[in-house]
Each structure stands twice: as C-alpha cells, then as structure tokens.
C-alpha cells in the first residue's frame, strides 16, 4: 500500500524548545506591535522604536528557527519569511489609517448612533 503521509519524527528533547520558540514568536510579535504603536502615540519616547524593530528581528528569527525544528517544507519556510516582511509594515499601515481617520473626523465626536 502506498504511504501517503509520513509522520515527521521529532526527537523527544525537541518538544520543549518547539513550544518555547512558538510562544516567543507571538510574544515578540505583540511586543513589536505594541512598542511601535505606543511610541507613535507618544506614550513612549521614539527612542523605544529601535527596540521594537529588534523584537521584529527576534520574532523573524524565532519563526525561522521554529520552521527548521518542525522540519517544514522549504516552500513553507519561504512563505513564512515573506509573511514576516509583510508584518514589518502592519503596525505602520495600521497607525497611518488611524491617523488619517482621526484627521478626517477630528472636529466630530460621534458616540451616538447618528452617523
């Protein structure tokens, strides 16, 4: 019978690093988004922004490391890295949209349903 799926063999001592690294992917990811947003909002000094980019770099590295540890297909690894490049722009795009919306509606303060 033709074998359709071969179970990826993961060594027992690799499970903990996999779970830790996958957590770090998201922790660094939220850290990056939060630092960039808070710096742009003025809650943090702009000096914190480079730290945000370091978080993004660490997130990218962790995601790459994760893809290696779980023996991802090369195609999947590449797509994940492209996704990380896209993620670099996400907080900036987000903030731009908010700023533009704020600018457009700065003289209104609509909290009721009258739009």
């Amino acid at each position: 019978m033709e074998i359709l799926i071969t179970r990826p063999e993961i060594a027992i001592d690799m499970f903990l690093p996999i779970f830790v690294v996958s957590t770090l992917v998201l922790v660094f990811g939220v850290g990056y988004a939060a630092l960039i947003t808070l710096s742009k909002m003025g809650y943090f000094s702009k000096k914190w922004m480079p730290l945000g980019y370091i978080f993004w770099a660490l997130q990218t590295y962790c995601l790459y490391d994760l893809s290696v540890m779980i023996q991802s297909e090369p195609f999947t690894s590449k797509v994940l890295m492209i996704a990380m490049v896209a993620y670099l722009f996400v907080p900036h795009l987000y903030f731009r949209l908010i700023e533009d919306t704020d600018e457009r509606y700065k003289d209104t303060h609509t909290t009721s349903n009258k739009i």
């Binding site: 998201l26 990811g29 939220v30 988004a33 809650y43 993620y87 996400v90």
Partner: peptide, 28 residues
C-alpha cells in the same frame, strides 16, 4: 497541510490587532 499551516500561522495577527485596539482607544 499547507493551507492549514499557512492560514493558521496568520490567525494570531488579528488577535494582536484587537489587543492593541482596546488599549489604544482607552489610552487615547
């Protein structure tokens, strides 16, 4: 496998957005 892996990996992104959204609006 591929579809599930790729789109699942993206699923946390809106959750980060929702997280930032609440704190952003409150702080603002």
């Amino acid at each position: 496998w591929e579809i599930g892996a790729l789109f699942s990996a993206l699923e946390p992104v809106p959750l980060i957005a929702m997280f930032v959204h609440v704190l952003y609006d409150w702080g603002k």
